[in-house]
Nucleic acid binder design. Structure first.
Lengths: 190, 190
DNA sequence: TGCGGGAACGGAGACCTTCTCCGTGCTGGG
DNA sequence: CCCAGCACGGAGAAGGTCTCCGTTCCCGCA
């Protein structure tokens, strides 16, 4: 996301302001927050917002990129502290909690794991997939995870399960239980 | 949904037209289809649409109610033809296929299984829950389904898994595989 | 330090959608 | 056949997205 030519001072300032305003607005109103309102909060014109972020998706990604990267980094920490299977489980739990708690992040993570195809090089999908790959491979080597699933599968299923848990209880009270059913299903056949 | 006083002839005609137009529009553009466009297709004013269906949700429910009821009825057929565990699996598969194929039905089914609480008496949730309950109880009695899950849990998880499969492949190519991982997780611990 | 080219700004405005309000017209029971 | 009143329909307010273009303000160079 860094610019080839460094940004002009005012441009950089507006960019930062927009990011901050966007994170607030998305947290408050969910992914559907009004873009013009975000521009107003940031004290810039809507033209400026659309120049920096051509689509809602682009803004969402930029606004939450730091959180996403923090999540990806957590995978490394957990991998160091816990045996592979447990690390994967714990990480998925944290990811799902984030998905449910931070309004607006659900849509972002969803699109990040969409379209298993070739392209899909969005800024959020890449670190998440990389983090998942590390945990998934370790768990498969350890033998606590089916060999026929891919990191993307695991992320997608976790995302789906988080959505299911949210349907059951918007506070996420069912998340642990639902997630344990998923990990049960992901264990190798005995 | 039937009226207490029978509807006036013109009212009934408009109601039917709206239903037909809505089913078309939702299938074509997904759940976000323009309501005013639906009114135009039906050849009525938007006021008429909003009088019959105060919310998008209400229209969605009414437009797809027959399909939902057909799905619920399928549960009975499958229960007669197959052993309980297989019947549940087959039914969930059909439900998920419908969810993925018919644009606009996903949101409807999602809301139908939301909020496991007391109320949630929407027209679609009730038959779906009832159908699920029958299959779930039979499978639990047979011993092919964990005893600690409820019909609503199963529906929600299936809905989540269908969403995950759609992320992987909008055509639904991964549905069978993802669903089998779920049913694996729903089997009783050996 | 001062200037000028051009990047970046910002808000007016075109267009779309939702939803309401109320004058109009049609239906159907008496 | 008639008229009370239900249902119609479209104009219009409110609010959103996104673009265009005249204006402002940086910053490199003299």
């Amino acid at each position: 996301m860094t610019q080839l030519k460094p940004m002009r001072a005012d441009a950089r300032r507006n960019y930062e302001r927009l990011l901050k305003a966007a994170a607030e607005a998305f947290a408050e109103h969910g992914e559907g927050a009004s873009l013009d309102d975000i521009a107003k909060r940031a004290g810039v014109g809507s033209g400026t917002l659309y120049r920096h972020f051509p689509t809602r998706q682009a803004l969402l990604e930029a606004a939450y990129l730091d959180r996403i990267e923090a999540m990806a980094a957590r995978a490394g920490e957990l991998a160091d502290r816990l045996p592979p299977g447990a690390a994967l489980e714990a990480w998925l739990h944290e990811v799902c909690v984030g998905t449910v708690q931070v309004r607006g992040m659900k849509a972002l993570l969803g699109s990040a794991v969409a379209d298993g195809g070739t392209a899909a090089l969005n800024a959020c999908g890449t670190p998440m997939r990389a983090a998942a790959a590390r945990l998934v491979e370790a768990a498969q080597k350890e033998g606590t995870l089916r060999a026929d699933v891919e990191p993307s599968d695991v992320l997608r299923l976790a995302h789906g399960v988080a959505g299911a848990a949210e349907l059951a209880d918007p506070e996420g009270g069912q998340l642990t239980r639902y997630l344990s059913l998923l990990t049960e299903g992901l264990r190798p056949r005995p």
